[in-house]
Simulated assay, not measured.
Amino acid sequence: MILVELRKLFLRTRTWVTIGLLCLLPAIVAVFLATTRIAPAPGQGAAFLSAVLESGSLYPAAALALVLPIFLPVAVAVVAGDTVAGESGAGTLRYLLVRPVGRTKLLAAKLFSVVVFVVATVAAVAGTSYVVGVSLFGAGDPVAVVNAIPQISAPGGGGGSSSGGGSSGGGSATANDPADAPTPAVNAPGAAPGAATGGNTVQSDPTEARERAADSVASLSGDALSPADLALRLLGAMLYITISMLGVGAIALFLSTVTTSSLGATLGALAALITSQVLVTLDAAASVTPYLPTRYWLAWIDFFRDPIFLRDIRAGLLVQLAYVVVLMLAAWANFTTKDVAQ
């Protein structure tokens, strides 16, 4: 049954068009950046865009920040909303259930297909963006990358700053603007400890810094990251985004068992997400903000800090897993008692 659902998913032209469009958006942005050599000022625009001109290795992270707030959730909602409602609306669901396959197994297979779609889409966006980024911008000058990324004054990207995606919900992922808070003294790569005074960072000799940080890029905190470390952090961010999108999939899949209209299930899931984003930015809703599905969406940026800030990452994982478990149990209870003749 799982193979049947995967075959149906990936034989649809719509699936590949969706993945292609999600990969195309970062590619278009990269072409404009490479052509004009004009990047957003540090603290403005999507996360990492202010640094990708100096290091194409960071472009997968910038690409994920570009597609996450709107395009990726819409794609997941469309696919998950069509899983059951599409079959029911077309009248083929009853024929599926004629086979000697229980409804629980069928629902599990459809959930698995949504998981595979999310994993494939996130991997495709990151993979194509890495190729495009390195091809257009090169591996990068680690010292220039350090200077291009603003310093971070508070941990917990999803809580204390706009970069972690908590305070702004599903809005654009941006790094902290140094003008908004006192800038801490952060030593540049190669600088001696305690070399920063008066809130200003004392830069070491550029040649020495390049030698010490060769083949590296910088974390949001300004410390050099080796290619292997960067790859591990990017994988962690991809896994976190995948789990976050499973929360979206769970909402749409539950609604897909309630209605026979795949469009209705998709729009219902998107309405829930938009409502969550609005409430996240509303001070009057502070009591419920930590439990909203979009509250910690952008906390994956904390993987690129040194040290990694795990507070909002853990909170985000718990929130998404709670949505997945509760909504899938509700979908199972509804689907197993659903009159498929209607």
Rank of each mutant, 00 (worst) to 15 (best):
G316S: 04
L270K: 02
S162M: 08
L68T: 13
P155G: 14
Q342D: 12
T257V: 06
G190L: 09
I2F: 14
N147G: 11
A231G: 10
Q320E: 10
L225T: 03
L96R: 07
G268A: 05
F137I: 10
T197C: 08
I243M: 14
R99Y: 11
R7S: 12
V132Q: 03
D306G: 04
A330K: 05
V324M: 13
T289I: 10
V78T: 07
I28C: 13
N200G: 10
S162D: 11
V79T: 14
R233A: 07
I152D: 08
A154M: 12
M1E: 10
G264F: 13
A231F: 11
A192F: 08
V340G: 00
V131Q: 04
V125E: 06
G160I: 08
A124G: 05
R233T: 07
W16Q: 07
A47Q: 06
D223T: 15
A191P: 08
S262V: 02
T13Y: 08
A181E: 11
P189S: 10
K338I: 03
P184W: 10
Y291E: 03
S244D: 10
A85E: 01
G164W: 01
G222R: 08
G91A: 05
V280S: 08
A108K: 00
R103Q: 02
L96E: 11
T266R: 04
L9T: 14
W300F: 15
R14T: 14
L253A: 09
G171E: 12
A77G: 02
M1W: 12
I152M: 13
A61L: 15
A195L: 04
S135C: 05
T174R: 11
R314S: 15
T281H: 03
P69D: 00
I28P: 05
V186Q: 13
G138T: 03
S153W: 12
A63T: 06
V145Y: 01
F71P: 01
A41Q: 14
F32E: 13
T281W: 06
T92S: 15
R233G: 03
I149P: 04
K338R: 15
E54D: 15
L6I: 05
G198T: 08
V76I: 13
S168N: 15
T36R: 12
I19Q: 02
G268P: 01
Y291I: 10
L279F: 08
L22W: 03
C23V: 15
M1C: 11
V324W: 01
I152F: 06
G160Y: 14
A109F: 00
L33A: 11
T266K: 01
L66P: 03
P193H: 09
A126D: 06
A77C: 11
V324Y: 02
V79D: 05
T281N: 14
L234R: 12
S88C: 09
L310D: 10
A231H: 09
P178M: 10
D141Q: 06
A237S: 12
L66K: 04
T201N: 11
A218G: 10
Y59F: 15
T337Q: 14
G236T: 10
A209L: 09
A120N: 00
P26R: 01
G56D: 07
Q277S: 13
L106T: 10
G166H: 07
A218Y: 03
V324P: 01
S216P: 06
G156K: 02
R212D: 12
Y323W: 09
R103I: 02
G158L: 00
D205K: 08
